[in-house]
Each structure stands twice: as structure tokens, then as C-alpha cells.
Write a protein that binds this DNA or RNA. Structure first.
Lengths: 325, 325
DNA sequence: ATCGTTGTTGGAATCTTATTCCAATAATCC
DNA sequence: GGATTATTGGAATAAGATTCCAACAACGAT
């Protein structure tokens, strides 16, 4: 049995007969079906949905007849699902959730929203830049909406490839050769430490100088963690990692608790490390200056709203460069 | 603007008014809507769907009225989407795809299928074990179906947490504390090399012995890649990585092309490396023996079919241990 | 064994919604 | 100005869904 025959990343296309069957699906039937599943009782489901029990019964029976499957075991005291019914329940819930999203989003448009952008971004972008950038974006476009989800860089790329979102922001190191790439921001890594750490009085540090001390690491999918491990390996040294934690604030708290040195971007330190009595020393290594990038599937075919967001994000650094000149 | 206010991993619940609006959505309207969007012309959409143009027009207008939004700009020579229309189009396509999945899966049940299991698995599990295990499973349960998708270990865990699938298989190192965990398999890493490599005559190797030579690495999200980098760092050495590639077969091809040593599981080498004239030398390091694990959200509440699969996968190693005894 | 209750389903009547038919309106092109 | 393309409104017709009413089945209590 080959690999290709067992992995089903892309569901097979419906046959013409199956396509015809899609027309026998309707949302009221799915809604009633879910109610029957939840209540395990047709009469209570009918009451919950405000309809006669015989109407529910007819719909369930019509549906079973149309598809040639049995969805329920009819018991004396109610109904139980068959495996086919369980499979349908999974899809029915997903479908009804999608419909709810339609209602929610269109309701927002009826109240004045002018567009939606779907975005995936890594933690670095979210912690350091997006609150400010999106705040400014909303100030300029207060009738646009953003759906933003946090993902590690690798998953941002994959999500954009699969069309789960329109715009992604991730580490420049993530492999995105199938996408269009634009510069978003640079950030600079700083070594975070307590004020009483032996390195605390330094103006700048080489990463190798930190390797003589304990470290607090980010989670192992983090591109900062990966890059620092790589740098240590290149220097023929090892990182003395006492713990890995999943966020910049957790890194700062562990540093504060004297668990070692942390390595996070400077703006992240300003955002989450302020008021903890910690020092942040910039890295002198070249790789301490890192790039975040914007990825999209096909800029020319973005919706107008997503295009607006892309242009806006691209303009940020250009405007900052102009202001600094 | 706080982080929590901009990240929308969990869509907000619909208000009662929005829930009421969900009843104004129906699949025929969505289907006609998508047709109008595709054709950018109501008359052609009507022809494509086999219905009078006035019926399509009425439905589009009724829908817009119900939701209080404008979906189309009416032009002299057809219709163009508004931003609200673009938002709806995204969801309409997703919803219709779900309905198609319903039709496809129920069609399979009507032809005799007795259950579905949704699975996510990492590459190690898929390349080495699942073809054989699922083949045996299907032999015993030929009326059950498996939807299997390949994901790196971290995404397997996340997918099961989110309910995207019922059963996951991933590296034991992946953080799955929110899930129920069962043992699946062990695998053993081997160093893959050409027959003329200086290390080719060894029976076993320590990983550190390989670090004097060039290496071919897996992609950077791979748990084998991460673990080997960690081991090199612990030994105070660096891996001489000439290239990273995305699969076990690619690793073998690069090794064959004299790009360096590869590190992959032994069964993966047997599956994809056979016939390439390569040698596979076992690692002596303890971490060379790795564990794959099964993760589920809540074993007690799995469907009967998924329960069957879980019990079957758990029984595999138990049966192998009994056969070896 | 009988009776009452719970629950599902079938048939006929009624109601609601969707579609078709027909025509009007508007914009563009020749 | 006329022809064509495209959308939409109104009325009539058709189709499908629901309600009403009753029958049937299974279970539990007596």
C-alpha cells in the first residue's frame, strides 16, 4: 500500500453522482439532525427546534433515503447514531459553524464594516509590531476587520499556501519559495538578564560570551531557539538550557526568577519585560538582527481589502526609513 | 491595543440576532451566489445552474435584504463583488466544500463503509509503519475508512487539540500534555552513507563520530533534525550541514549523491533507501532509539470506529512483544 | 396480561416558499 | 435610433414543507 494511497491531504473530488447528492443536503435538515443527535430523542429535538416531531422524522427519513444510508438506530426510548451518523455529525457541526461565521461577518458588514483581512502571524510579529501597526491601520481604516491567528513561522507559510488566510507574517528563515515575499520588519535580539548578572554591565555582547552561563530557551519550534542552537553549534559550544518556555513573557519571568539568560527581540522585551528590573543587552553578532517577512499567495489576486493591508504593511518600513532620513 | 484583542483563534460566539440570521442562509442561495461570482453575470450563472435568471436575482436580493448588506455592484455588463461579497464568497466556498465532503462520505457509507477515522501523523510514522499497519487494519476491517493527513509532530498535537482529527501519531518529544497519550512504536536512527565512506565498515557509531564529516539534514521542523542539533551542541561540536531536505527519500538521494551522512530511522531507510547502494549503520547513542506516540483528545468519547483504530494501534506493539517472547 | 406513557412514523390537508412566465428598465454598442 | 445584453418586478403556478391526526411499537408499572 503506497504512501500516496493512504495520505489524503487533498480530499478526492466528488463524482457526478455525489455532486448531485450535495443538492439533497440542506441546512435545516443538518440543524435538525444535530438537534436529534444532541437530544438522542426526536420529540425533544422537535421541541427544541419549534417544529412538529413528524416533520423532523420525515426529514431524517427523507435524508436517509436520498443517501441510501442509515443514520440512526431507532430505539424504544430514543435514537442512537450509527457510524454513518457519526461521520455526518462531524461534518454537520463544521458546516453549521461556517454558516454561523457567515452570519457573524455579514452582520458586521451591515453595521458598517467595509472589508475583512485574514492573517496568520508568528509570535515575534504579534508581540512586537502588530498591535501598534494594526492599531494605526484601524485608525486609518476603522471599518475594516482583521482575523488574526498566531502560528509558528512554518505553519504561517503552510496556512497561506493552503488558503486558510490571505496574508502571513513570519521569520525570513521560513521556507516560503511557493509564495510572494515582502519585507515587513527587522528586529534585534537582546540578551535579557537580571541586574545582578555578571554580564549586566556590558554595552553589547557576543552570543558566545553568554554560553558560559545558564540559559532560558523558547519553545523548540521557535526560530529564535533554532537559530541560537545553530550559532552555539557553529561555535563548537553548547547552550546550558535549564528550561524551555512558550512565550517572551515567560522567558522574562524565568530570567527574573534567576533561571538564566534569555534571548528575545528588543521590542518584545520593551513590551513584556518592562518593570521587571531586568537588563537587555544587544547582541553584537550579525544574526542578532533578524528579518520578519510578509507572505501572500498571489498579490495580484488579493481582495481589495487584503491588498490595502498588504500595501499598508509594506509601507510601514518605507515610511520609517523616510522619517529616519 | 492588547494581544488578546487582536488574536482571534477562537471566533466569537454569534449574538442571538446573528444566530437568527443563520436561518436565512441556505445552500442553494450560496451555490447560486458562488455561480454569480464565478460568472460575474447573473444570466450566465442562471444558465449554469439551470434556473431562471429572475429566480437568481430574487434570491440575491432577498439575501441582501435579510442581512442588510450589499454583495454586488450591479454593472451594465454584469456584476462585481463588494468587500462584503468577497467575505461571503470565502465562507460560501468553504461551506460548499464541507457539503461536498458530506456527500462523498455518506456515498461511501451507502456503498458499504462502516466507519471513518480521521488521523494526523508525522512523516516517521507514515513512511515506516502506517502503510503496513493500516493495510493490516483494512484487511481486518475492510469496511472502515481512514482520512490520514501528514503533519509535523507539533501540528499533529495541535490538530488533535482543535478537533481537526480524532487520532494523532507523532514524536514522543512533542508537547501533548493536554491530550491522552499512548505508546505506538519505537524506531532506531541509523547513519546512512555511501559504501565508500570512511565510516562504512563500522558496525555501530556514536553520533559524535559522525560530526567530523559532512551531513545532510532533514527540514528544520523535523524532530530528528532538532534532536541531532541538540546532541551536537551537547557534545560541544557542530554539525557540518551541507543541505536540508524535506523527506527521508530526499536524504537518501543526497547521501547517494555524495553530499554527506544522513540520519533517518532504520525502517525508513529500508522503505526508501533500498537499492541505492547505501549503508545504514545503527547509532549507539541512547537517543538513537526514539518513541512515536498516539495522541487523542478523550479516549472515552471517541466514536466506535476511532476507538477500534486506537485499540488496534495500541495492540500492535503489545502483540509484537508477545510474539518476541 | 393489561394499561399508561413515551416515542416514532404514515397519510392527508394546509401552508409557505420558490420558480416560471412575461414584461419593463437600463446601459452599451453599432 | 435600434438591437443586444443584462437585471429586476409582478403575477401566476408549482413544489416542497409543516401541521394535524392517528396508528404503531416498546417499555415499565401494576
Amino acid at each position: 500500500m503506497s504512501l500516496a494511497s493512504i495520505v489524503s491531504d487533498v480530499p478526492r473530488a466528488a463524482t457526478p453522482a455525489e455532486t448531485a447528492l450535495t443538492r439533497r443536503v440542506d441546512l435545516t435538515t443538518l440543524r435538525l439532525f444535530v438537534a436529534v443527535c444532541d437530544e438522542q430523542n426526536l420529540t425533544r429535538a422537535a421541541q427544541r427546534e419549534g417544529i412538529a416531531a413528524s416533520a423532523v422524522s420525515k426529514r431524517m427519513n427523507d435524508f436517509e433515503l436520498a443517501f441510501g444510508v442509515t443514520l440512526f438506530k431507532r430505539l424504544a426510548k430514543g435514537m442512537a447514531l450509527t457510524p454513518a451518523g457519526e461521520a455526518l455529525l462531524h461534518h454537520a457541526r463544521v458546516t453549521l459553524l461556517n454558516v454561523e461565521k457567515i452570519a457573524v461577518e455579514l452582520s458586521e458588514y451591515s453595521q458598517g464594516v467595509r472589508g475583512h483581512v485574514r492573517m496568520l502571524a508568528n509570535l515575534s510579529a504579534i508581540v512586537q509590531h502588530l498591535p501598534e501597526d494594526l492599531s494605526a491601520f484601524f485608525a486609518a481604516h476603522e471599518l475594516l476587520r482583521v482575523d488574526l491567528q498566531e502560528r509558528p513561522s512554518g505553519q504561517v507559510v503552510r496556512g497561506i499556501e493552503e488558503g486558510a488566510a490571505d496574508i502571513g507574517i513570519c521569520s525570513a528563515e521560513a521556507d516560503s519559495r511557493a509564495l510572494e515575499v515582502f519585507h515587513y520588519r527587522y528586529d534585534n535580539l537582546v540578551v535579557v538578564m537580571r541586574g545582578d548578572h555578571p554580564l549586566a554591565d556590558r554595552e553589547k555582547l557576543l552570543f558566545t560570551e553568554t554560553l558560559d552561563y545558564d540559559h532560558v530557551g523558547l519553545h523548540t519550534a521557535s526560530s529564535i531557539y533554532l537559530r541560537s542552537q545553530y550559532a552555539a553549534a557553529q561555535a563548537g559550544k553548547t547552550m546550558r538550557l535549564r528550561i524551555n518556555v512558550p512565550g517572551f513573557d515567560a522567558v522574562c519571568r524565568m530570567v527574573q526568577a534567576n533561571m538564566g539568560l534569555g534571548l528575545i527581540p528588543d521590542r518584545a522585551f520593551e513590551v513584556v519585560g518592562a518593570g521587571m528590573g531586568l537588563r537587555a543587552i544587544p547582541l553584537r553578532d550579525g544574526w542578532g538582527r533578524r528579518e520578519l517577512k510578509i507572505v501572500v499567495r498571489d498579490a495580484a489576486h488579493l481582495s481589495a481589502t487584503s491588498r490595502l493591508m498588504l500595501d499598508y504593511l509594506r509601507a510601514i518600513e518605507a515610511n520609517r526609513v523616510r522619517q529616519a532620513g
